[in-house]
Amino acid sequence: FIDQHRAALIARVTNVEWLLDALYGKVLTDEQYQAVRAEPTNPSKMRKLFSFTPAWNWTCKDLLLQALRESQSYLVEDLER
């Protein structure tokens, strides 16, 4: 899901800070967390977050999807259609 809908997630996720907090310490290191937060816009934050995903396994991507479902369920539901 995460890889399949990358472009839509970059464009449409609005609550990136919540995602970062949910992933911090589980998937994201402090350095990665700070790097994403330093980006000026939500799309650039999501691009930076996605720059780390090639090194993630399915469990990490599932944690991101779970966080998306909790914070932006309407968006996930729309993309699952």
Rank of each mutant, 00 (worst) to 15 (best):
F50G: 00
S71P: 03
S51Q: 11
D30G: 06
F1L: 02
L28A: 03
E77A: 11
T53N: 00
L20V: 08
R6T: 06
A55D: 13
S71Q: 11
Y24G: 07
R6Q: 10
N15K: 13
E31F: 02
R6F: 06
L20S: 06
L65P: 00
P43W: 10
H5G: 02
D30N: 09
E39A: 07
L9Q: 00
L20W: 00
G25L: 08
T53L: 14
T53Y: 15
L64K: 01
D30W: 10
Q34D: 12
V76M: 09
P54H: 11
A67Q: 04
D21Y: 02
P40L: 06
W56L: 06
H5T: 05
K26R: 12
K45P: 02
A55H: 14
V76I: 13
L23A: 03
T59I: 11
F50V: 06
Y74W: 14
P43T: 14
F52T: 00
Y24E: 09
Q4L: 09
K48M: 11
L65G: 05
D3A: 03
W56K: 04
E77C: 05
S44M: 14
Q4Y: 03
V36Q: 02
E77F: 12
P40V: 07
L65S: 07
V76Y: 06
E77Y: 07
L9W: 02
T29S: 11
L63F: 09
N15S: 07
L9P: 04
Q72L: 05
K48S: 01
V36W: 03
L79P: 01
T14R: 11
L63S: 05
L65T: 09
V36H: 02
D30S: 11
T29N: 09
E77H: 09
D78Q: 12
K61W: 14
R47D: 07
S71G: 07
A67T: 08
P43V: 13
Q72R: 04
A8S: 13
K61P: 02
W58R: 15
G25K: 14
E80A: 10
I10D: 04
L68V: 06
E39G: 04
S51D: 12
L65M: 11
E77S: 10
A8M: 09
A67H: 03
A35N: 02
K26T: 14
D3M: 00
L9H: 03
P43G: 10
L20H: 01
L20Y: 05
T41M: 04
T41V: 04
Q72P: 00
Q34A: 14
E80G: 10
E39S: 02
T59P: 08
A55E: 15
G25Q: 08
T41C: 10
S73R: 14
G25H: 11
T14P: 02
E77G: 07
D21F: 02
S73M: 10
E31Q: 09
K61F: 15
T41R: 01
N42W: 06
T59K: 14
Q32W: 01
V76H: 00
E70S: 10
N42M: 07
D78Y: 11
D30A: 12
A38P: 01
M46V: 09
K26A: 09
E39R: 04
W56C: 00
Y33M: 12
L64Q: 09
L49A: 01
Y24D: 12
W56A: 01
L9F: 03
N42S: 08
F1G: 00
